[in-house]
Nucleic acid binder design. Structure first.
Ligand SMILES: Nc1ccn([C@H]2C[C@H](O)[C@@H](COP(=O)(O)OP(=O)(O)OP(=O)(O)O)O2)c(=O)n1
Ligand SMILES: [Mg+2]
Ligand SMILES: [Mg+2]
Length: 1163
DNA sequence: ATCCTCCCCTAC
DNA sequence: TAAGGTAGGGGAGGAT
């Protein structure tokens, strides 16, 4: 009967238990294996988001400069000087692109592609020169601006460039791969279906690409972004209107759906066979007339319902889905978030009654405790039914749908209905089977909220010790009241009934457990006193005894489906049976605490006290219904919504908590539900079905107090899953460990070291550091705050004022700094204009984080320049408000950011002197901008074991510091990666591995020997690489990799041998390249790895190469001690006399610690 | 022992 | 059609 669906294990249990059980099974497997490689198109804010003085200034003053720059750059391409002049390479002849915002590939790479293949690249937009605008994604609001700028030019996604390149011809803007992985899958499917064709096409990789391009043209969805911006705008605003004023016009909203779908997704893709859609290409939005009439009537019908939002039911069709879902639709969200609203509403009362916890052992008081448990009867129904007096004696339930065949869940059923077997949590269709006359009423969350407030007002009026359990349920400790508890209960119930016109039931007993059990047996609209057996020697005592004896264990609070099943296996069904079991046995089977609880509960023993609501220890939000995505940008978009709608308020709450107690909430946890392999569409409409959970968490060393930083972490996690977004069924993000604000100090309390690591950040000896600011990076945000208050350890007021903030680096900036998990730092290259060419006035108007980032690129010279140009501390202001790293304890406390940069650089150069880690005095501050890799399949660039650290330096360290370091790193990580690499794969024996004797030979000669070697190989991947190397003037590996990468994207399945051989050779090539270049051009190596890293989500081959060769780079870099500092991290702590900071080298983190002025490098 | 992390379980 | 959220307790197992 209560069977919810086959994908939710078990049934027959009370609704919620089954929901929980399903959650349990769904959450069970934690899978970190990568899914289909998928290019993550992390969305970035458009530059147009930043309209303001900055843009105006920039346009005004830099226009001419950029124009000149663009012209010269472009001419470079069209002149063809550095470009191959071959005819077939001029794929982009006549094309001139302007890249808007963040893209993958980056604008610089796109530029490279254009220049190498006859196209032009414009650094700024001009209607006269630009032929195509490239952008990955634009939120709705930006489309308008884009429209204004585009002047009707095609706005296309960057894949167009790649795929045109792959096809070796200019693809139509109107045809586009729906999704990278989709095309890959389709292509593979085609090949599988037609093996002979596959063989044929496999004669050369390039042929495959061409073939694919031709074959796929018909399958491709439009590439071009939809323009109809005006209409879109109109419709959007209309919709917004509609949702605010309970609309009356169905046409608009349904149309809006179509519109948004196009606007957001850029293409409408049918989800695997479920919803057939309406050829995403040609929905010319705004054309109301073209809508299906049945949809009209549906929508119209829906609109007659009280709920304003209608017919939007998934993330596919409704851009405001999550917001609406939480705001007006989800009952579970309502009851789940109720506690927070209660906290807010009654916080004064709560702080006033702080007594209960300190008297935890109050059994010293002889007085027997008296507990009242009170709970509204069928709460949701009672509230609604007030408006339908006729229905009181009819079976009634609250549910979203009255469809007798539907999978909507019953939220609550009145007692008439319960007699038929209708209960919360079952599907409405099952309820209708039990009770065909069941009347379904809709939700009214506002009414629930209002009644709940009345309810608690009354409770607080009668009793000072109130423990809220839920919106309709509370414990009262009336021990200290003189009045008979039963009379109190009566009075309260009476008042509740009069005030709310809803009934409540109460249980009175000596402890929480019995009171709650008493309530249950008193329902509905009754109350019951359940005396403890010891005191009452009478018939009542017998009642308790009997009551418990025959009580099914399932009735005990804390025993749900899983525990019940376990007990059933042990032949324990009732409390009486459980009493027969030894406590030790229970503890063995269920764990210490649970066993104890079981043993106590079946005897009616409960030692808990009534306590007020504690501070929240965690917050989170998730959606697991209606989640259907078409592509990654949707997911990002959804997350954004997520945090601007619901999560936003959560974050606000969090912020207030943080500012109040300076708390840490260092663990963030993203969870994604993915359809389980082979799982059918869920029985429950739009449900998540049988899912596999993927989750990732990170411990950040500082409180996250801004939702943008959260969002960025979340997006990074998200992209690291490499999940086929069509399989995504749910998303959740949680922040926990709020309580670490109260971490007690002990041990080496004045040392704090945080390291980033690939999977998560490790926090070691995490202490709250008062008195000093903490500046560290553990994600990719900057932690900043005002100057530390010295001396006043617990000056929370001061800390409030100087509350640190996280800078969300890509907030509203077009200066690409953070691009999600797969991105790399912008690499310093010839593209960087000379410092003196910058207009300082313009620069100064840039967003601060951009200045900082640029400053990094200019190695601090920019900030020098700015401060000089201003002649005062303008920059100081900027910097101290963002990266203030002031060490009050040293005499150079006034060191500015530029000093820091210089010192940092010096630090890098120093290292050349000796074969030791650099030693740096006087480093007060180093600015840092970078990110942490959370990509699980990518090894972080951080040295991964002590074996990579300089042992002599390590020896110098204080003992306690050493201990910390040991805690952070494995003592030794096997670094013979190349060996491991060959053996850890299941390589076919026939693969011809590079001969060890070839070492150092691959790169000798001109062209390098490998080019010919690869060319003559039978391996078509190597052939392709060789071809590109030959045709390229530039024999730098980074450049070759860039040009060849599009051809290594997954297109069709080659044999393992081919892959393995290619990987081995590429590994060897890279290894020898490192040896070759490490002393002369480490930046080139870095460029190679950056590129590999970013492309790796798309190319399994390159991912493997990256992973295998990276450690070689790490080791080499350390051994050579020529550390080219591309980016820095400033992470400065003043901890007593120990200062901790970390510096980013490339992507690896160095931790420096110095004590008493003596400065030691660890890693 | 005690902590930590990654889950599961439970309640409404 | 339908709105399967939220937060705390705690167990298993590894690290310290
Ligand atoms: N599976 C569930 C359980 C509960 N609720 C909501 C509706 C309930 O009205 C409210 C309170 O839950 P109770 O357990 O107190 O159930 P009722 O108040 O409905 O009935 P009872 O009279 O048993 O308390 O929470 C829900 O939406 N879904
Ligand atoms: Mg109730
Ligand atoms: Mg209740």
């Amino acid at each position: 009967m209560g069977s919810n669906s086959s994908d939710r294990p078990s049934s027959s249990v009370s609704s919620f238990a089954s929901a929980a059980a399903s959650g349990g099974s769904l959450k069970r497997s934690r899978n970190r294996t990568p899914q289909n490689p998928l290019r993550s198109t992390t969305k970035r804010k458009s530059p147009f988001a930043d309209f303001g003085s900055y843009m105006a200034e920039k346009n005004r003053k830099l226009g001419a400069q950029f124009r000149a720059d663009a012209a010269s750059v472009s001419s470079l391409g069209s002149d063809g000087a550095p470009v191959d002049s071959e005819e077939d390479k001029g794929v982009f002849r006549g094309v001139s692109i302007f890249v808007d915002g963040f893209t993958i590939p980056s604008s610089q790479e796109l530029r490279g592609y254009m220049l190498r293949h006859g196209g032009r690249f414009e650094n700024y937009f001009s209607r006269d020169t630009v032929t195509h605008i490239i952008c990955s994604n634009l939120p709705n609001s930006k489309m308008r601006n884009l429209r204004a700028f585009s002047h009707g030019l095609p706005v296309v996604r960057p894949e167009w460039v790649l795929h045109s390149l792959a096809a070796n011809r200019l693809l139509s803007c109107l045809s586009k791969l729906q999704q990278d992985h989709v095309i890959g899958k389709q292509a593979i499917a085609c090949f599988v279906e037609v093996p002979s064709l596959c063989k044929l096409a496999c004669s050369s990789w390039v042929n495959i690409c061409e073939w694919r391009a031709q074959q796929m043209d018909t399958l491709w969805a439009p590439y071009q972004l939809v323009h109809g911006a005006c209409k879109q705008q109109k419709l959007s605003t209309y919709f917004r209107h509609q949702s605010i004023s309970t609309s009356s016009d169905a046409k608009g909203s349904i149309n809006h759906d179509e519109e948004i779908k196009v606007g957001q997704n850029h293409s409408v893709v049918p989800t695997d066979g479920q919803t057939s859609e309406c050829g995403g290409i040609s929905i010319q939005v705004g054309d109301v007339a073209c809508l299906k009439s049945e949809e009209f009537s549906q929508a119209r019908d829906a609109n007659q319902e009280p709920s304003a939002s209608d017919m939007v039911h998934s993330t596919l069709t409704d851009p405001n889905f999550v917001e609406n879902y939480f705001k007006v639709n989800s009952r579970l969200h309502f009851i789940g978030t109720w506690r927070n609203r209660y906290r807010q509403r009654f916080s004064k009362l709560l702080t006033g009654v702080k007594s209960s916890n300190e008297n935890l052992k109050c059994h010293s008081t002889k007085q027997k405790t008296a507990i009242i448990h009170i709970d509204m009867d069928c709460f949701f129904v009672s509230v609604i039914i007030r408006n339908f007096p006729d229905l009181v004696h009819k079976p009634v339930a609250v549910c979203h749908s009255d469809n007798p065949r539907g999978t909507a869940e019953i939220s609550s059923a009145n007692y008439v209905a319960r007699n038929f077997g209708v209960k919360a949590g079952i599907f409405v269709r099952d309820a209708k089977v039990c009770c065909p006359n069941l009347v379904i009423l809709p939700y009214d969350f506002e009414a629930y909220q209002e009644v709940a407030e009345q309810f608690y007002n009354i409770l607080h009026k009668h009793c000072s010790k109130v423990q809220a359990l839920s919106c309709d349920e509370a414990f009262l400790d009336v021990t200290e009241c003189d009045v008979d508890p039963e009379d109190i209960a009566l009075a309260i119930r009476k008042e509740i009934a009069e005030t709310t016109r809803c009934t409540a039931s109460a249980g009175i007993a000596e402890n929480l457990l019995l009171a709650r059990l008493a309530t249950r047996s008193a329902k509905p609209n009754g109350q019951r006193f359940l005396p403890s057996e010891k005191v009452e020697l009478h018939i009542d005592a017998l009642v308790v005894e009997d009551y418990l004896n025959d009580l099914p264990v399932m009735e005990l609070p804390g025993i749900g489906y899983a525990t019940h099943e376990k007990l059933k296996k042990r032949q324990i069904q009732t409390c009486g049976q459980m009493r027969m079991t030894q406590k030790e046995g229970l503890q063995k089977d269920f764990g210490e605490k649970i066993g104890d609880m079981l043993w106590n509960y079946c005897r009616g023993i409960d030692n808990r006290n009534v306590g007020e609501v504690q501070e929240a220890k965690s917050i989170g939000a998730e959606v697991n219904w209606g989640i259907r995505f078409n592509d990654m940008t949707d997911v990002g978009f959804e997350l954004e919504l997520y945090y601007t709608s619901t999560g936003y308020s959560e974050c606000k709450a969090l912020i207030s908590v943080i500012s109040k107690c300076y708390a840490w909430m260092p663990l963030t946890h993203l969870q994604v539900k993915k359809r389980k392999q082979g799982a059918a569409e869920p029985l429950k409409f739009m449900g998540c079905g049988d899912c596999q959970n993927m989750s990732r968490s990170i411990t950040v060393p500082i409180a996250i107090d801004n939702e943008a930083a959260l969002l960025r972490i979340a997006k990074k996690f998200l992209s690291s899953f490499h999940i086929d977004v069509k399989e995504v069924r749910g998303i959740g993000l949680h922040l926990t460990k709020l309580e670490s604000a109260k971490i007690t100090r002990k041990g080496r309390e004045n040392i704090a070291v945080w390291l980033s690591s690939p999977m998560h950040a490790t926090r070691s000896k995490c202490k709250q550091i008062s008195q000093s600011d903490k500046q560290c990076d553990n994600g990719d945000f900057l932690f900043s705050s005002g100057p530390p208050e010295s001396g006043d350890l617990d000056s929370s007021h001061k800390l409030d004022q100087d509350k640190p903030t996280l800078l969300f680096q890509d907030a509203g900036s077009n200066c690409s700094s953070i691009k999600g998990a797969d991105c790399v730092r912008p690499i310093r290259s010839s593209v960087l204009p000379p410092l003196q060419d910058l207009d300082i006035d313009v620069v100064r108007n840039l967003p601060t984080e951009i200045i900082l980032e640029m400053d990094v690129l200019y190695k601090g010279e920019l900030s020098d320049l700015i401060s000089k140009s201003k002649g005062n501390n303008c920059l100081t202001h900027v910097c101290s408000s963002t990266v203030s790293l002031i060490d009050a304890s040293t005499n150079s406390a006034d060191a500015g950011i530029s000093d820091a940069h210089i010192d940092s650089v010096k630090l890098g150069l120093d290292s050349k002197d000796k074969g030791k880690m650099p030693i740096c005095e006087n480093v007060e501050s180093i600015s840092y901008v970078d990110q942490v890799t959370m990509e699980p399949k990518l090894f972080d660039l951080m040295p991964a074991s002590l074996s990579q650290a300089d042992a002599s330096v390590f020896e110098q360290m204080p003992e306690d510091v050493k201990a910390d370091v040991h805690g952070l790193l494995p003592l030794h990580r096997e670094l013979k990666v190349s060996k491991d690499f060959y053996t850890c794969f299941d390589f076919p024996s026939c693969v011809q591995f590079p001969d060890p004797h070839l070492k150092t030979h691959l790169w000798s000669g001109d062209p390098p020997w490998w080019v010919e070697k690869f060319n003559t190989s039978k391996n078509i991947l190597l052939n392709v690489i060789s071809r590109h190397a030959k045709s390229s003037k530039d024999i730098r590996l980074s450049s070759i990799l860039q040009s060849v990468a599009p051809f290594l994207l997954p297109v069709c399945e080659l044999s393992n041998e081919v892959y393995a051989e290619a990987i081995c050779w590429l590994h060897e090539l890279l290894a020898q390249y490192i040896v070759l270049k490490i002393g002369s051009d480490i930046e080139e190596i870095y460029n190679c790895f950056c590129f590999l890293k970013r492309i790796s989500p798309s190319s399994k081959i390159l991912l493997l190469v990256y992973n295998s060769a990276l450690p070689l780079f790490q080791v080499s870099a350390w051994n050579f001690d020529v550390l080219f500092i591309l980016t820095f991290l400033m992470f400065s702590c003043l901890l007593g006399s120990i200062k901790v900071f970390s510096v980013m080298f490339g992507l690896s983190v160095l931790i420096g610690i110095w004590k008493n002025g003596k400065h030691v490098f660890l890693l």
